[in-house]
Design a protein around this nucleic acid. Structure first.
Ligand code: MN
Ligand code: MN
Ligand code: ZN
Ligand code: ZN
Lengths: 149, 149
DNA sequence: TTGATTATGATAATGAATCGCAAAATTATA
DNA sequence: TATAATTTTGCGATTCATTATCATAATCAA
């Protein structure tokens, strides 16, 4: 059993929930998907492979993943929540290309430390944070330059 | 005439739009409000002072403010957009208290510089960014400590 | 196997934000 | 100032992502 499956089952048993084939199937497809997937994308991906799961169950299951610590929800400003695996994944922040919607992950310990410094100066306890850099990725820049020639 | 009013009128004339009493009234109340106000809050504030303006016009006018460079929209994760004056206001980021919803502004040039460094390393051109630190403010921490005694 | 409990799919409901439209207001021009 | 082209308004309808409802189905401890 995968460690992600074990984590989810542990959460399920600790909360008197039940292991269902839907939950197992959503987990399988979620783990096999690109990071930062939307509920709708996951729904279509499962439908396309013959599953008859309902969209409400996708939402319920993704919420369950978040509650169990397996996933986290992100809002990148396009009106749809995106979900990504965070269990056994190093914390990171995001660069978001507004031309091709590509999402680039990065880690920067210096920024993390400075955030804590800002919090301390304001007697503030940080529980979570969001750092998103919006702009144009290198591929889209190159494409634009080629067109401009 | 206030500099904010001048900026808006300049934008209006440059785009063949019209100065209306509604737009003037929304601007007056917006400038007189707390920073980070929602459309609904602004709507109620105007209604409470006898205005019969419609909510759609509030939304339209706030969008106009953003297009003119007077204001910017923020999303602090509670599902409602908030708007704040940015014209002649120094760029800053936000600490958001999840207990009392207080919003604390801060500036940190070191973080801003590191963001650019991250972008450069990824050949990414930043157009805008979002840095939000979520947690508990000092007042709410103090309150909680007092209760725990 | 049973039966208490939880989960599911279909559909309705929600809530923030936008749209369409007829009527009203603005403003350039005469 | 009167006219008329253009823009704006308020209202209500609409959109879209997400959640709630509820009857039926599935899970699982005993
Ligand atoms: Mn990520
Ligand atoms: Mn601010
Ligand atoms: Zn791109
Ligand atoms: Zn607080």
């Amino acid at each position: 059993m995968k460690k992600e499956e074990a984590l989810l089952k542990d959460h399920i048993s600790k909360h008197n929930l039940k292991v269902t084939k839907e939950r197992s199937a959503v987990l399988r497809v979620f783990l096999d998907s690109d990071r930062h997937i939307t509920a709708e994308e996951l729904y279509r991906k499962m439908r396309d492979t013959g599953s008859s799961i309902g969209l409400a169950t996708i939402y319920r299951t993704l919420n369950l993943f978040c509650e169990s610590g397996l996933a986290e929800q992100r809002q990148f400003g396009d009106g749809q929540a995106r979900y990504e695996l965070v269990y056994n994944v190093k914390h990171h922040d995001h660069l978001i290309c507004q031309a091709c919607n590509r999402i680039i992950e990065f880690q920067n310990e210096e920024i993390e430390a400075l955030q804590e410094k800002v919090a301390k100066k304001n007697n503030f306890k940080i529980f979570s944070h969001k750092l998103e850099l919006y702009g144009i990725c290198s591929a889209c820049s190159a494409e634009k330059n080629a067109l401009d020639q």
